[in-house]
């Protein structure tokens, strides 16, 4: 049985309460579910004997610019053994955007989550070191949010005196 067909039944069996929304576009399997379940689901995917998603390749977010479900946090995880990549997605609300951190499972998520926080302002709970990644520490905007203009807000970043 292909790994692709195995994942969803196994997840459904383990988490009967959770609603898993599965899409398969251009061969990429994507599973969307409730944000509160992110840590247990990742834990299951990483430690299950058949799946073994041992590498977290990417964490990012999407800003949909809508009132409800404004952000979607997206995870790409990879199983070296099965040579298979899976995408997980969780919706996050606009006021107080937060989601549990997966750093205890994959250390590599540390910087990805910091980057996502830097760009979107999504707080990752229990993250060991949630600082800005690229922008200066005292910067107050989140550049990849849709309301932020491409050329920035005049005066938000300083230049040295001439």
């Amino acid at each position: 049985m292909e790994i692709k067909d195995k994942i969803v039944p196994l997840l459904q069996e383990q988490f009967p309460e959770t609603n898993f929304e599965v899409t398969d576009f251009r061969g990429d399997l994507k599973i969307k579910f409730d944000a509160s379940q992110i840590y247990p689901v990742c834990n299951f995917l990483k430690n299950h004997d058949d799946l073994k998603f041992n590498m977290c390749e990417d964490v990012t977010a999407i800003d949909w610019a809508t009132k409800k479900n404004r952000f979607t946090v997206v995870y790409h995880i990879y199983s070296l053994e099965n040579k298979f990549r899976l995408r997980l997605a969780c919706d996050v609300q606009e006021n107080h955007p937060h989601i549990a951190s997966v750093v205890p499972l994959w250390k590599s998520a540390n910087w990805y989550e910091r980057e996502t926080y830097d760009m979107y302002g999504i707080k990752f709970e229990n993250h060991p070191d949630l600082r800005r990644m690229y922008m200066p520490e005292e910067y107050e905007y989140y550049p990849l949010r849709k309301e932020y203009p491409l050329m920035g807000i005049p005066g938000d970043l300083t230049l040295p005196k001439k």
Binding site: M133, Y134, M135, P136, P143, L144, L150
Partner: peptide, 14 residues
């Protein structure tokens, strides 16, 4: 990091 952050992802959206 960030001394060469050029905002590629923002530019790509535009």
């Amino acid at each position: 990091l960030g001394y060469l952050h050029r905002g590629y992802e923002k530019m790509a959206e535009n």
